[in-house]
């Protein structure tokens, strides 16, 4: 039976009420200055800090940060980095998959996850001079200012 009703999802966020815009990933490692800015609110990144669609992830001159997303994509950043999650959709049961991001400056290490495995054209990283299409892999990316 191929009717598609709304997905039955029960999210039990430990200790807090499920927000309207749920986390799509969490900070897993931090050193030095690192920040997560979501909906205009900038907070110092800590291990366990949530990342949402639209979040800006930044590191200072001695900072590093690593994030694991819900689809098991991992992205980590070196110092002086500015990275934005522009588009993240992970609903495999409905075939809705997309991971768009942008590196404005700095360095990153990217390991693609389930979104890329299920829909190879759905994962891109934008840079000031072009676009990188990700086809299931690990790569390093550096954007000089």
């Amino acid at each position: 039976m191929q009717r598609i009703p709304a997905a039955l999802i029960l999210a039990l966020a430990a200790g807090h009420v499920l927000a309207a815009d749920p986390a799509i990933g969490y900070v897993k490692s931090v050193s030095g200055d690192a920040f997560v800015t979501t909906a205009g609110a900038k907070a110092k990144a800590q291990v366990g800090s949530p990342v949402q669609q639209g979040s800006l992830l930044e590191t200072g001159k001695n900072g590093t940060m690593g994030v694991t997303f819900k689809d098991e994509t991992m992205v980590s950043f070196g110092p002086n980095t500015s990275f934005t999650v522009t588009d993240y959709v992970y609903a495999p049961a409905e075939g809705k998959l997309k991971f768009g991001s942008k590196l404005a400056k700095g360095s990153l290490n990217y390991v693609s996850g389930a979104i890329e495995k299920m829909k190879p054209d759905a994962v891109t990283v934008g840079t000031p001079t072009g676009t990188i299409g990700v086809r299931g892999t690990q790569f390093l990316l550096k954007v000089e200012e």
């Binding site: 676009t131 299409g133 299931g136 892999t137 954007v143």
Partner: peptide, 19 residues
């Protein structure tokens, strides 16, 4: 500014298209 491909944690090599 550049991108470099390295082996994935599981040892496989994927690909990236740089436009």
């Amino acid at each position: 500014s550049y991108v470099v491909l390295i082996p994935s944690p599981d040892g496989s090599i994927g690909a990236v298209a740089v436009k």
